[in-house]
């Protein structure tokens, strides 16, 4: 086992009956890393997590953890924790008993058990709620119980399936910080699923973007945000002006524009609305739509390159519908896409 592959999935294939869900997945995760799994609904995030936890049979391929092949190890012997999106707290047990559940199964008793449960509850700020039942807690509190219940087991890997999706915006931010703190304190390797790219960018050491059961891109938040390598990832992280290149040339309604000197091998180029220069440049467009977003204003332009979205500071003078504007797509700022579609 190298350091770079504490948890490693190799050629992992998962299916529901005959319906393939994840074909041939490879992923290596370092010890102590905080990984975000990002991707559209139905792309196989939950399925992958369940396979790591041992709740989903592996069709072919391998899962290894801490140097051992765990592909066939039953879920209760893996030392992998999973926080369910639904929390899955035991409704008949109190908060205290929920947290103590796994520890008791490990044979822990008496003072040792009590100390461990208390410190687990304390770390999520729920010491005073020990005697409540899950039904008497708010969504955020339930989620913290679920987190504590998994954390006290000191799993080798902690998986969190959309842990923050049921919370309101304020609690979400709070729990985000909480998660990060717990992870830094304990150094546990964590993978969390999210739909929210802002959450992934804010929390993760590395982001894994999935599409239809395959990994589209793995990289640091900076990589994913600024240097998406495929049109799919670019679109997912908010590049709204995405163009396919044909041998370095951009197809427009006014003929081909040669960009091969700037992006010799790129399959496509992408710009965020912010990256479009408005007011000067070689291209022209007509304002078709405009929307105001507080400190910025967005324009939808009709151009020979196709529709272009541009965003400028709201302090700049507004342009009326139908106005003709010059604009530029600065190639040196564009994201170079190596895969398109």
């Amino acid at each position: 086992m190298s350091d770079a592959s504490y948890l490693s999935l190799s050629k992992l294939t998962l299916a529901y009956g005959d319906t393939p869900a994840v074909p041939d997945l490879d992923l290596d995760i370092r010890k102590g890393e905080l990984i975000a799994l990002l991707g559209p609904s139905g792309c196989g995030k939950t399925t992958t997590m369940r396979a790591i936890a041992g709740l989903m049979p592996v069709k072919s391929g391998r899962v290894s953890l801490d140097g051992a092949d765990i592909t066939r190890v039953p879920a209760n012997k893996r030392a992998v924790g999973l926080v369910f999106q639904s929390y899955a707290l035991f409704p008949h047990l109190t908060v205290y008993e929920n947290v103590a559940f796994g520890l008791k199964l490990k044979g822990m008793r008496g003072n040792e058990l009590d100390a461990k449960v208390q410190s687990g509850l304390k770390s999520v700020g729920l010491s005073t709620f020990a005697n409540r039942r899950p039904a008497e807690l708010s969504g955020g509190q339930q989620q913290r119980v679920a987190l504590a219940r998994s954390m006290v087991m000191e799993p080798k890997v902690l998986l969190l399936d959309e842990p923050l999706s049921n919370l309101d915006a304020r609690l979400r931010l709070e729990m985000r910080t909480e998660l990060q703190r717990v992870q830094k304190e304990t150094g546990v390797t964590m993978i969390f699923v999210t739909h929210d790219q802002a959450e992934a960018l804010a929390l993760a050491d590395r982001i894994v973007v999935m599409k239809a059961g395959k990994i589209e891109q793995i990289g640091s938040p900076e990589d994913i945000y600024s240097r998406p390598t495929s049109s799919f990832v670019a679109d997912f992280v908010g590049f709204e002006n995405i163009f396919q290149l044909d041998q370095g040339k951009l197809q427009t309604s006014a003929g081909l524009v040669d960009l091969s000197s700037h992006a010799p091998s790129a399959a496509g180029l992408a710009w965020r609305p912010r990256m479009v220069t408005l007011g000067s440049g070689p291209y022209r467009g007509t304002v078709r739509g405009t929307s105001f977003a507080g400190d910025s204003r967005e324009y939808l332009l009709d151009t020979k390159l196709g529709p272009i979205k541009a965003e400028v500071d709201a302090s700049q003078p507004a342009h009326a519908l139908g106005a003709e504007l010059a604009f530029d797509l600065p190639v040196e700022r564009a994201a170079l896409l190596s895969r398109f579609g």
Binding site: A53, G54, L55, A75, N76, R78, V80, G81, L82, F84, S86, A88, L89, F90, P91, F101, G102, L105, K106, R149, S150, M153
Partner: peptide
């Protein structure tokens, strides 16, 4: 919900 059974399994129960 059946996921509480899975949760119990992941906490070490058969």
């Amino acid at each position: 919900r059946s996921d509480i059974e899975e949760a119990a399994v992941l906490l070490g129960s058969s």
